[in-house]
């Protein structure tokens, strides 16, 4: 599904060059649920953004379904993000002027699709928010906002779902509900999921856990998943 080969990523911070990732290689199989753990500044989110084509590596290559991202044009990567990859963010990142259903429909509308209602209703039902679809973000709870975020990520039937600390801004009970939803989606739709978290309990929802330290993979662990 996704292959990361000898990827490094450097940032300029003032006069200093910060190396966020250092020669990382990784392969994720279709249908796999991968959790990425590590302390702050270890490069977790950077790895996730590179995997989703939000950013480009300083060296190395990222392959999605066998195609190198670095040779793709902006239009092609945008299409990829619109149709094949879904993102879930820690702070939900919903557009405040749109209703829940409009936020969910966003990837379809951006692709100028008109018949969006069926797909939107389907994913809203999947995340249990059919009754709240006309509400705007400021009328929803944190858990509901994250469900809308997940529905938005799923609406175009992606092959890969990338989640960046999806429970980081939720209480523990709501966090568990969201993780369960992600796990169920992974299994029911055979969806590949890569989730960044600093919480070992959340990471345990994955099939495999890698731990990053100082921009390198320090540990790569396959787990028998007790939450399934």
């Amino acid at each position: 599904m996704i292959r990361i080969e000898e990827v490094s990523k450097e940032y300029q911070r003032g006069t200093q060059v910060v190396r966020a990732l250092n020669d990382v290689s990784l392969e994720v199989q279709p249908g796999e649920f991968l959790s990425i753990m590590g302390p702050s500044g270890s490069g977790k989110s950077t790895l996730l953004h590179l995997a989703g084509g939000l950013d480009m590596p300083s060296s190395g290559e990222v392959y999605f379904e066998g195609r190198a991202l670095s040779v793709m044009k902006d239009r092609e990567i945008s299409e990829l993000r619109r149709n094949r990859i879904g993102f879930v963010f820690q702070f939900f990142n919903l557009l405040p002027t749109l209703t829940a259903e409009e936020n969910v429909a966003l990837p379809l509308l951006l692709g100028n699709r008109r018949d969006v209602d069926t797909d939107v209703d389907r994913v809203l039902a999947m995340v249990g928010l059919s009754g709240r679809k006309r509400h705007k973000p400021d009328q929803l709870s944190g858990g509901e906002m994250q469900r809308v975020g997940i529905a938005r990520a799923l609406v175009c039937n992606p092959a890969l779902l990338l989640a960046d600390e999806p429970t980081g801004n939720l209480d523990s009970k709501t966090g568990e509900e969201i993780l369960t939803l992600l796990r169920e989606t992974n299994q029911e739709l055979n969806l590949t999921v890569i989730m960044v978290t600093h919480d070992p309990k959340a990471a345990a929802y994955g099939d495999r856990i890698i731990t990053l330290r100082d921009g390198r993979i320090a540990e790569d662990l396959k787990v028998g998943n007790g939450h399934a």
């Binding site: 989703g52 939000l54 902006d74 239009r75 945008s78 299409e79 993000r81 619109r82 149709n83 993102f87 963010f89 990142n93 557009l95 966003l106 990837p107 951006l110 692709g111 938005r152």
Partner: peptide, 10 residues
């Protein structure tokens, strides 16, 4: 977010 969900630069 728009870019992440598929909007191009254009």
């Amino acid at each position: 977010i728009l870019r992440a969900t598929g909007a191009t630069k254009r």
